[in-house]
């Protein structure tokens, strides 16, 4: 049975897959398998603008606001899920 965190992490993975498919960025490389360890910048060549755009998608999907100051240590899907988890908890 999935824990709440697993559900959040799975949703982040699905959002990332959807973003990569539909973002329309002409130079974005297509993705392979997305795991908790997937690093947005190094595994998918998302540049800083695209990472920020994806974070906005996450904000809307989870109905949260992500403080940019909280992102310095959030580079992977798992780390982003932890940020979302803490925001939903608070």
């Amino acid at each position: 049975m999935n824990t709440r965190f697993d559900e959040i992490e799975n949703k982040v993975k699905a959002l990332l897959a959807s973003y990569l498919e539909s973002s329309g960025h002409p130079e974005l490389e297509k993705h392979g398998e997305i795991t908790g360890a997937t690093n947005l910048a190094s595994d998918f060549t998302l540049d800083s603008f695209q990472v920020m755009e994806f974070l906005m998608e996450m904000e809307e999907s989870f109905d949260i606001m992500i403080d940019m100051n909280n992102l310095s240590n959030a580079h992977t899907v798992n780390e982003l899920a932890k940020v979302v988890d803490s925001l939903l908890e608070s």
Binding site: S23, G24, H25, P26, E27, L28, D47, S48, F49, Q50
Partner: peptide
Amino acid sequence: IPPASPDGF
């Protein structure tokens, strides 16, 4: 050019 441009183009 990205990332200095505002929309990925």
